[in-house]
């Protein structure tokens, strides 16, 4: 269980990474924390010709507050984000989701942007980004562009990132006053991939629910605020709409039930914590 051969480049500047991406395109893989990529390399599921290491790009190791959002640079680890003092206040959804991601040892290396690029359908961070309606910042030698979360993650392990592009930052919309945010997930064991992960945002007369682990990518639905009976119907429709599939850990039905049952709970929690 050893990786296939590849070249390796340790980048000191963003530009050098972009040059390598321009040169190698789809045959290059960026490694930042490598907590998903390394396992796939070891299993030879992924066989890049070159691994471009951006972990030491200190210029991208920033958390920045901007108008209406918090921006995480590409080399900010999940642990660093957890340790950012304003996290709970500014992006409470991310603060609630982070402890569910793997284990503290993997969060010490795994990055926010790496998780978004990996685009695992059960992952917490893409789910939060999609639910909050955040953006990612992609750069290539050609241009820099900002892509909305729902346009970015297009399917199973698949994103709209072009082969010569690198994600340089992710922007999570900041908490709005009077809004509520809540996160829940169910997994077999602590730190496992979610069977179903749910993120809820309540505010401005709307309910928004994001669901991970059921479809090929995070699914987000928004409703006008409503009473409990109507919400139950709405969640039921949403569950059926998502469908879900069986795997060895849970059935499609179980996933739908969790959308209904935990969906109701997480929305309730979001309502409760409106500030």
């Amino acid at each position: 269980m050893k990786p296939a051969n590849f070249d390796y480049a340790r980048c000191e500047r963003v530009e050098s990474a972009l040059d390598l991406l321009a040169e190698h395109g789809d045959d290059a893989r960026i490694i930042a924390g490598g907590q998903s990529l390394m396992a796939m390399l070891n299993m030879r599921l992924v066989r890049p010709s070159i691994v471009v290491d951006i972990a030491s790009l200190d210029e991208l190791a920033y958390v920045k507050e901007a108008a209406g959002y918090v921006e995480f640079g590409a080399t900010v680890t999940q642990a660093a984000a957890e340790a950012w003092p304003a996290l709970r206040k500014r992006v409470p959804l991310v603060a609630a989701a982070l402890p569910h991601i793997g284990h503290f040892q993997t969060r010490n290396r795994g990055t926010i942007c790496g998780s978004l690029c990996h685009a695992d359908p059960s992952s917490e961070l893409p789910l939060c980004l999609a639910t909050l309606g955040g953006d990612v910042v992609l750069r290539s030698r050609r241009k820099k562009r900002v892509v909305g979360a729902l346009d970015f993650q297009i399917g199973l392990l698949s994103t709209a990132k072009q082969p010569d592009e690198m994600m340089v930052a992710a922007r999570y919309p900041a908490a709005r006053s009077g809004w509520g945010y809540a996160f829940r997930e169910i997994s077999r064991r602590h730190g496992d991939f979610a069977i179903v992960a749910l993120a809820a945002v309540v505010g401005d007369g709307k309910i928004r629910l994001g669901v991970g682990g059921v479809d090929d990518k995070p699914a987000v639905h928004e409703w006008d605020d409503m009473d409990d009976d109507s919400l139950a119907d709405a969640l039921n429709d949403f569950a059926w709409d998502l469908g879900g599939g069986d795997d060895i850990h849970a059935t499609a039905r179980y996933r739908r039930e969790m959308v209904r049952r935990l969906g109701k709970k997480v929305i309730g929690e979001a309502r409760q914590c409106r500030s």
Binding site: W240, D241, Y254
Partner: peptide, 25 residues
């Protein structure tokens, strides 16, 4: 497994009025 137990303790799954049930893989 919880999925199995939930089926033991739950009745039939709620149908949707507006969304057709998909055959789950």
């Amino acid at each position: 497994k919880p999925a199995k137990i939930l089926e033991w303790i739950s009745g039939d799954e709620a149908k949707s009025r507006s969304v057709a049930a998909k055959a789950s893989p």
